[in-house]
Amino acid sequence: MTGFFQSDPVRVALAAGAVTAVVSGVVGVFVVIRGQSFAGHALGDLGTLGGSGAFLANVNPLWGFVGVGAVVAGAMELFGVQRRRGRDVATGVVLGAALGLSALLLYFDTTTSTTTGATITVLFGSLFAASPQAVPEMAGLGAAGVLGVVVVFRPLLLSSVSPDLASARGVPVRAVALGFLVLVGVTVSLTSMVVGTILSPALLIGPAATALRLTRRPGAAMAGAAVIGLIATWAGIVLSYASDHWPPAHRGWPISFFVVAIVFVTYLGVELVARRAR
C-alpha cells in the first residue's frame, strides 16, 4: 500500500470518483423514483458512441459522453422513449444501431491510433488513465448536476409522484422532465468515466436503490446513495491498486469490477435485511 496516496493517478482517480459518487447518488434517487432506470441504460449505450468518437478525434472521452448524453437525453424526452414500455421496438433498433456504429469507431480507434486501451476505457472505464485536467472538468459537471437537482427538487418530486397533481399546481411537467433527463445524461457521462458506459447504470442506480430501502426521506436517500457510491468507488480504487500483484497477469484488475461488485453486494445485503425485518 506504500505510495498509494503519493501516486498522481490514484489521487486523480479518488477525486474524480468522489465527484461522480455524489452526483450519481443525488440524481440516481430521482431516476429510481421516476422508474427511469431504462433511460439510464439507454444513455450508457449511446454514450459509447460519444466516447469512441471522442477517442478517434483525440478529445477527452468525457466530452464525447457529455455531448452525446445531453443531446440524446433531450431527444428521448421529446419523443417519449424513456420508458421501456413506450416505443419498445424503435428504441431497441436505435440503441442497436448506435452500438453497431460504436463498434466501428472502436475498431478505428484501436487500428489507427497508438492508444491501445480505447475499447476497455470506453466500455469499462479506466480511471487511472484519466488525465489530471479531467478532475476539475468532472467536478464542474458534477456540481452543475447537483445544483440542477436542488433547483428543480420540489417540482420534480411532485411531478414524479403524480404528473396530474403537478400540472394542476402549474408545474411545467414536460420542461421539468426534459431538464431532469439532461441531468441524467450528464451524470451517466461521469459514471461512464469511472466504470465505463456498459456498467454506468449500475453506479447510477445501485446506490440510490439501496439507500431508498433504508430511508423514507428523499434528501436522506440522496445523502445515503452518495455515501454508498463513494465507499464503493474508493474501495474499488484501493482494491484495483492492490490487485496489481494478483493473478493471472499481475496487472491490476479493473476498478469497474470492484465498484459494481461492492454496489451489488451492498444492495443484496440491504434487501435481505429489509425483507427479514418485514
Binding site: 436542488v150 420540489r154 417540482p155
Partner: peptide
C-alpha cells in the same frame, strides 16, 4: 407540504 409550495423552484 408540497401542497403549499410544490411548484416552486429552488431551496426551501
Amino acid at each position: 407540504a408540497l401542497g403549499i409550495d410544490g411548484e416552486r423552484f429552488g431551496v426551501r
